[in-house]
Design a protein around this nucleic acid. Structure first.
Ligand SMILES: [Mn+2]
Ligand SMILES: [Mn+2]
Ligand SMILES: [Zn+2]
Ligand SMILES: [Zn+2]
Lengths: 138, 138
DNA sequence: ATTATTTTGCAACAATGTTGCATTTATGTA
DNA sequence: TACATAAATGCAACATTGTTGCAAAATAAT
């Protein structure tokens, strides 16, 4: 078991359960983003679908994972950096989705550029999603 | 009926049907973005759900509308500028989603900044979605 | 007007997401 | 460790969203 699992759950005052340990481990191992369907497949019949939905929701609320917007009606989730906290995400990095293999990357070191909006718009968050071909697929 | 409707459909070699005329009119009138659900509601029982799905898909393929990614599992659609063509979108403007009223704006005059990715990533499209509070909601 | 082509509506289905509630599991305390 | 309390899970039932095949209807071409 990945060493950070218990730590992360405790730090967020979440009870230690099989599903939370297993799902969190998936994120820690893969490093890339996961959709609900990925988790359901990988965990086989181990957990109920509903449990996966609730676990993902809890993790998002606690700032353990964040969502990545997409144009294909399938939200993906990825690990947050350690400094995200409950109700306070600040994963202001760029995301990349590969058109070929479908992999979604968190480009932690590419910060989102600042965009100047017309007066009257109050910005609270900027999401940048880049699509194209990833390293492995060329 | 909006003057551009017949023009747009003909230019894209689409047969003139009631659903296409009506749905295109919605986009021309509202100017903002529409989700599938919005169209279904606004058109009442006039068209079958399936027809709306297929019409939106056709319009996207022809470059009449474009999709706007979101993190809430509900893709929105908005009119393309006239210079989009079949399989060749270039709506490289920023989108804004209001947290309060839910309205999605195409900020046609705010172009997406260029992002420098690590070597190995081949960029084909950049989507910038800003969220916050819009003009009307402050 | 007639024919050929395209689009539509319907039905049936698949996938995705939500809620209430009884049961199980985890946690805190004695 | 055993017990009481609190929390999470699984299940069922349901709602919403999206897909596909095909016959009927509408549109376009001749
Ligand atoms: Mn990320
Ligand atoms: Mn737009
Ligand atoms: Zn790839
Ligand atoms: Zn607003």
């Amino acid at each position: 078991m990945h060493p950070r699992i218990l730590d992360t759950l405790k730090r967020n005052q979440l009870s230690i359960t099989d599903s939370r340990k297993k799902i969190l481990e998936m994120f820690l191992q893969r490093k890339g983003a996961l959709a609900h369907a990925d988790i359901e497949q990988q965990s086989g019949e181990e957990f109920d679908r509903v449990t996966i939905y609730r676990t993902l929701q809890t993790f998002v609320e606690k700032g353990i994972i964040h969502t990545i917007p997409s144009a294909d009606n399938s939200v993906r989730y990825a690990l947050c950096k350690d400094d995200c906290s409950e109700g306070h995400h600040h994963d202001n990095h760029v995301h990349f989705m590969c058109d070929q293999c479908g992999t979604t990357y968190c480009l932690d070191h590419v910060t989102v550029p600042s965009v100047a909006l017309p007066v009257g718009f109050l910005v609270s968050q900027v999401d940048v999603v880049v699509s194209g071909t990833c390293l492995k697929c060329q």
